[in-house]
Design a protein around this nucleic acid. Structure first.
Length: 457
DNA sequence: TTAGGGTTAG
């Protein structure tokens, strides 16, 4: 329908532009203006809104758009359902995602390849790789034309479910059958291989990307930069940052966070401050992860007044603090020696409905030890339901620092038996401590047990 | 309409 030069197609373009930058109220206002001018919204208009509401607001708000859509006499189609299922998956609602899929079938709407892609992603997200694989096989056997995204989701899902070798095998098989990887395929593999510390294979994929016709993008650079920081090659990471800037890639919130976090971690606070200032002066809007990075910077400088002010700012801005936010505060307080403050915040975190947080408890263990209260750290350790290698290494190393080498030795053996990994430096500290305090035989026995644990692993 | 990068502990 056309009226005064405005058509439904044009209306939809406007709506899509506003939705893309999350200006949903403006999008709604344009619909009202359009109706006044006689432009009737169609299924595309409503689908754009459903997608935006489920992505940026909530699934409930998306349902209310569907209600309005039905009132206007427009029936939801496969795209409407795809948006809803994707939204339910993002909100970690597995059964709701599956119910929606079923509802779509019941309504006689045929799923398309995107529906199956979303469902596959959903199963991977909920740690059900077998179900995801079944969907993948169905897509391959069906008449549906598979899309490169199908393979990307499969490769990414296999990696996140700890099937990296299978993901690599699939990648190579697909290439043999003529699949031309997209940039996102390379980015997925580089990221996942780096996270699994399989540096050599990550470098191979990066080299293959370099040899392809594709140009790396800002995501590739951020991913590789993060890999360098993860493997403690800080200067190399900063070189990549310079290269990224010189090539004219826009430095976004992701890139700034990666750099600032690495600078803070290595104690280069002045540089971190400068980088953060640059972020703000470039007009980059801070999201929760960026705020958390800034909060960590304040805590590491002992600027708790600024940190608490920032917490207020975050919440006043309508963002909800997450487990990272609270853990950063707890860690910062522990590092500053304010154990009672950290305990108070841990309690506050539980009151807010957060589950027991292993990282926060590990911070407490280390903080208690550094404050000279190893016995309380031991008590906390015993009370913890789950412990990991960090818990063990931290406590063993601190026992050594306090000269309690026999206790450290006993605890370390128990941890190794439980399959925990202990840092080499910590093992050496225990052995050296036992020898220097005259427990030579015990040191010999421990060394033998360490070797046995290594063989049996 | 799908997939990929950033924030916490030893």
């Amino acid at each position: 329908m056309m009226f005064g030069g405005l058509s439904t197609k044009l209306l939809n373009i406007c709506i899509a532009s506003f939705c893309k930058v999350r200006l949903l109220e403006k999008a709604e206002a344009i619909i009202i203006d359009g109706i006044r001018l006689g432009v009737i919204p169609d299924v595309v208009t409503y689908n754009t809104l459903v997608s935006a509401y489920s992505r940026y607001v909530s699934l409930d708000s998306a349902y209310s758009v569907i209600h309005r859509m039905k009132e206007a006499g427009i029936s939801p189609n496969v795209i409407t359902y795809n948006s809803l299922i994707a939204g339910a998956t993002r909100d970690c609602l597995l059964s709701q995602s599956l119910d929606l899929f079923e509802e779509m079938l019941q309504a006689g709407i045929h799923p398309d390849v995107w529906s199956y892609n979303i469902l596959m992603n959903c199963f991977f997200k909920f740690g059900k790789p077998d179900e995801a694989n079944r969907i993948f096989q169905d897509i391959l056997l069906s008449n549906l034309a598979s899309h490169p995204a199908t393979f990307n989701i499969m490769i990414n899902g296999l990696c996140t479910n700890e099937y990296i070798d299978n993901a690599l095998m699939l990648f190579r098989n697909l290439q043999r059958h003529g699949f031309v990887p997209q940039l996102v395929t390379y980015n997925i593999l580089i990221n996942r291989l780096c996270k699994a510390r399989r540096w050599r294979q990550a470098r191979t994929i990066l080299r293959e990307l370099g040899e392809s016709d594709l140009e790396p993008n800002a995501i590739t650079y951020t991913t590789v930069m993060k890999c360098c920081f993860r493997s403690k090659q800080y200067d190399k990471g900063l070189d990549i940052m310079s290269e990224m800037k010189s090539k004219g890639y826009a430095f976004d919130s992701f890139a700034y966070c990666t750099v600032v976090a690495a600078l803070v971690k290595t104690g280069r606070i002045e540089e971190a401050n400068a980088c953060m200032e640059q972020t703000m002066s470039n007009g980059i809007e801070l999201d929760l992860a960026a705020y958390n990075t800034l909060l960590n910077m304040y805590c590491r400088q002992g600027k708790f007044e600024a940190a608490y002010k920032l917490l207020d700012e975050i919440e006043k801005g309508g963002l909800l603090c997450d487990k990272y936010t609270h853990t950063i505060i707890i860690d910062g307080l522990c590092k500053a020696g304010n154990i009672s403050g950290a305990q108070h915040h841990l309690h506050h975190m539980k009151m807010m409905g957060f589950h027991e947080n292993l990282v926060a408890l590990n911070c407490m263990i280390d903080g208690l030890c550094k404050a000279g209260d190893i016995d309380r750290a031991m008590e906390l350790y015993k009370s913890m339901e789950t412990k990991d290698s960090v818990t063990c290494t931290s406590l063993v190393h601190n026992l050594c620092r306090a000269g309690r080498f026999r206790c450290a030795s006993k605890l370390m053996m128990k941890c190794l038996k439980d399959g925990k990994k202990i840092l080499r430096a910590t093992k050496r500290a225990v052995l050296r401590g036992l020898r220097s305090s005259g427990y030579t035989d015990e040191a010999k026995k421990l060394q033998w047990k360490i070797q046995m644990a290594r063989i049996l692993r």
